[in-house]
Design a binder for these strands. Structure first.
Length: 520
RNA sequence: CGGGGCGUGGCGCAGUCCGGUAGCGCACAGCGUUUGGGACGCUGGGGUCGGAGGUUCAAAUCCUCUCGCCCCGACCA
C-alpha cells in the first residue's frame, strides 16, 4: 500500500508556474469549524433577520445535513442530507433518461495538457485546480488534474468515438464528484469538493446543440419548480459570468430567503470550441468532414443549499414533500406504560398503511425524549407533516396532524384514522403546492424594476432582492457596478415582457433586460 | 496575501491581568419519577489547557518561537 500512496499537491498558481515544479505547490486554507454559541443553547436558532449566514450554518449542522471535515473547505454529507441529495439525483436522472440521455463514468484524473487545449477553459479554471504531482512514490512525468469539470477528458474520448453523422447525437451524463479549490467556502453552496451531474453532448448541427442546451434548461426549471418547489428564472449569463470556454451559458436563478440570488443549474452551448480543441469531427451525409457542436450542463449539491435557503424559516428547515427524506413523522404520546403499548401498536399500523401508500414515514419511538422535544426537532429537520398520536386520539379514532409549512398549535388539524393514508397523500400535495406558492410570492415581492442607477443603489441598500433593468452596458460597466454595489447580472431572462426602454446605467436605448442581484 | 478575532472535556465558555490540587452549563451513561410544544432528581464517566522551548520550588496563567482556526476583502457550480 505504501508504494501506492498518492501525494496530492494543491496548487494555486497558473500552469506555467506549476510546470517548473521546483517551487512546491502550496496549500490554501479555508473554512473549518465554527465555534458557535448555538451548540450550547440547543433551544433556539439565530433568527434569519439577525444573521442569515449564521442561521444557515446552524440549520445545516443541527438538522444533521452536513458537518465540517478535517480538510479545509470540504464537508461530510450526513445521511439525512445525502438522502435529500439522492432524491434530487433520482428526480433529475428520471428526466435525463426521459429525454434520451444515458449515464456513463469518466475518470477523476485528467492530464494537465488536456486543460490547456482550450484557451479560455484553462484560463478560467487554473486558479482553482488541485493537481497531483506525485504518485506511486515518484514524481509524475505529467501532472494530473483532479477534474474541476470533465469537458476535456470527455471531449478527448468523443473524438475517438465520433466518425460519422450516424454516431450523433451523443447524449451522455455522468454523476460524479469534482474539485475546485475555492477561496471562501460554505457548506453545500461552495465546497472544494462537490457532487454533481454533468451532461456532455455532441450534435451534428448548431441548431441541434442549441436546442439541447435549452431542452436541458427546461428540464432544470421543471425540476426546480415541481420537485424542489423553487421558482426559478431562466436566462442567459452575461459575458463576465459565462462558463470558461462556452459560447453561451444559460442558468436557472433562484432567490434565497435573504433576497440574494443563487445560480442553481447551468446549461452551456459550447459551439465548436471544444470540438476544435479535441478534434471531434464527423463525416456528414455529403462525405464532408465537419466539427461537431457540443453542450454541457450541470446541477450540483448546491441545490441542497438552495432548498434550505429558499424554504427555511426561523424554526429550521422546510423540505418540499417530493424530495423530503422523511415525509411524515409519527410522534407517539402516552403517560402510563400500558397506554404506551397501545399507542405504539396503533402507530405501527399507521406506519404500515402509509408505507403501502408509498409515503416515506418514520415512527419516532425514542423514549428518552418527550413529545415536545420531538416536535421541535422534526420541525428543525423540516419534515413536512407530523402525526401526533396518543390514547385520547386512539379512543376517538383520530390523530392530530401538524403541517410544517403552517406551524404553530393553532394550525393543527384533527383527522380520522380511517382513510388516513389518502388524507396524508392529499396534504403532501397541498404542502408541496403551498411551498411553491410561498416561495413565488416571496420572490415576486422582492423583485423590482428600476430606471436609474440612483434608484438601483437605493433599492439594493434597503430591500435588496432581484432588480430588473434595461441594460445596454458592457463588461466594464458591469464590473464597475459590482465594485460599487456588489450586485452582478444574474442573467438576461428569456422572458422579457418589458419591451424596449432605456438602459438604467448608460441611458442608451435597448430592448435587453437584465436581472441584477447580490449572489452567492 | 492584507485587516480583525480566537485556541481550556464532544459543544459553548470561565479561569490568564495578580503563577499555588482545572471549573461551570449543555451533551453523554446508570437509576427513579415523568411524557398532548424543548421534564426533573440523584449518581457517574470524560480534559497532556493548540504545540515546542524557557523562567520558577511551582505555569492554563509570565517570556520566546511556532502551528491552527474563524470573520472581513480579492476568486467562484
Amino acid at each position: 500500500m505504501s508504494g501506492e500512496i498518492l501525494y496530492w499537491h494543491i496548487v494555486m498558481q497558473k500552469w506555467d508556474t506549476i510546470r517548473n515544479l521546483h517551487c512546491v505547490p502550496l496549500v490554501v486554507i479555508y473554512f473549518r469549524k465554527e465555534k458557535k454559541a448555538f451548540m450550547a443553547d440547543k433551544k433556539s436558532i439565530t433568527p434569519r433577520q439577525q444573521d442569515y449566514s449564521r442561521w444557515y450554518n446552524e440549520v445545516v449542522q443541527r438538522a444533521e445535513m452536513a458537518d465540517y471535515s478535517p480538510v479545509k473547505g470540504t464537508m461530510v454529507i450526513r445521511p439525512y442530507g445525502y438522502t435529500l441529495w439522492e432524491n434530487i439525483r433520482d428526480a433529475l436522472d428520471r428526466r435525463f433518461k426521459a429525454t434520451g440521455h444515458v449515464n456513463a463514468y469518466f475518470p477523476l484524473f485528467i492530464p494537465m495538457s488536456f486543460l490547456e487545449k482550450e484557451a479560455e477553459h484553462v484560463e478560467g479554471f487554473s486558479p482553482e485546480l488541485a493537481v497531483v504531482t506525485h504518485a506511486g512514490g515518484k514524481e509524475l512525468e505529467e501532472p494530473l488534474v483532479v477534474r474541476p469539470t470533465s469537458e476535456t477528458i470527455i471531449g478527448y474520448m468523443y473524438s475517438q468515438w465520433v466518425r460519422s453523422y450516424r454516431d450523433l447525437p451523443i447524449l451522455i451524463n455522468q454523476w460524479a464528484n469534482v474539485v475546485r479549490w475555492e477561496m471562501r467556502t460554505r457548506l453545500f453552496l461552495r465546497t472544494s469538493e462537490f457532487l454533481w451531474q454533468e451532461g456532455h453532448t455532441v450534435h451534428a448541427t448548431k441548431e441541434e446543440a442549441i436546442a439541447e442546451t435549452l431542452r436541458i434548461l427546461d428540464v432544470y426549471a421543471d425540476f426546480a419548480i415541481n420537485e424542489a418547489a423553487i421558482p426559478v428564472i431562466k436566462g442567459v449569463k452575461s459575458e463576465r459570468e459565462r462558463f470558461a470556454g462556452a459560447v453561451d451559458s444559460y442558468t436557472i436563478e433562484a432567490m434565497m430567503g435573504n433576497g440574494w440570488a443563487l445560480q442553481s443549474g447551468t446549461s452551456h452551448f459550447l459551439g465548436q470550441n471544444f470540438a476544435k480543441a479535441f478534434d471531434i469531427k464527423y463525416l456528414d451525409r455529403d462525405n464532408k468532414l465537419q466539427y461537431g457542436w457540443t453542450t454541457s450542463w450541470g446541477v450540483s449539491t448546491r441545490m441542497v443549499g438552495a432548498i434550505i435557503m429558499a424554504h427555511g424559516d426561523d424554526n429550521g428547515l422546510r423540505l418540499p414533500p417530493r424530495l423530503a427524506p422523511i415525509q411524515v413523522v409519527i410522534v407517539p404520546i402516552w403517560r402510563k406504560a400500558a397506554d404506551g403499548k397501545i399507542v405504539l401498536a396503533e402507530a405501527n399500523k399507521i406506519v404500515n398503511r402509509l408505507q403501502q401508500a408509498g409515503v416515506r414515514v418514520k415512527l419516532d419511538d425514542r423514549d428518552q425524549y418527550q413529545p415536545g422535544y420531538k416536535f421541535n426537532e422534526w420541525e428543525l429537520r423540516g419534515v413536512p407533516l407530523r402525526i401526533e398520536l396518543g390514547p385520547r386520539d386512539i379512543a376517538a379514532r383520530k390523530v392530530m396532524l401538524s403541517r410544517r409549512d403552517r406551524p404553530g398549535r393553532a394550525n393543527k388539524l384533527q383527522i380520522d384514522i380511517d382513510g388516513l393514508a389518502v388524507t396524508v397523500q392529499r396534504l403532501l400535495v397541498d404542502i408541496q403546492a403551498a411551498m411553491l406558492a410561498d416561495a413565488t410570492r416571496f420572490r415576486d415581492e422582492h423583485t423590482t424594476t428600476v430606471a436609474s442607477y440612483d434608484e438601483f443603489k437605493e433599492r439594493l441598500a434597503n430591500e435588496g432582492g432581484f432588480i430588473r433593468v434595461h441594460w445596454a452596458g458592457n463588461r466594464d460597466d458591469e464590473a464597475r457596478i459590482k465594485e460599487e454595489t456588489k450586485a452582478t447580472i444574474r442573467c438576461f431572462p428569456l422572458e422579457t415582457p418589458e419591451g424596449a426602454g432605456r438602459c438604467f446605467y448608460t441611458g442608451r436605448k435597448t430592448d435587453r433586460v437584465a436581472i441584477f442581484a447580490r449572489a452567492y
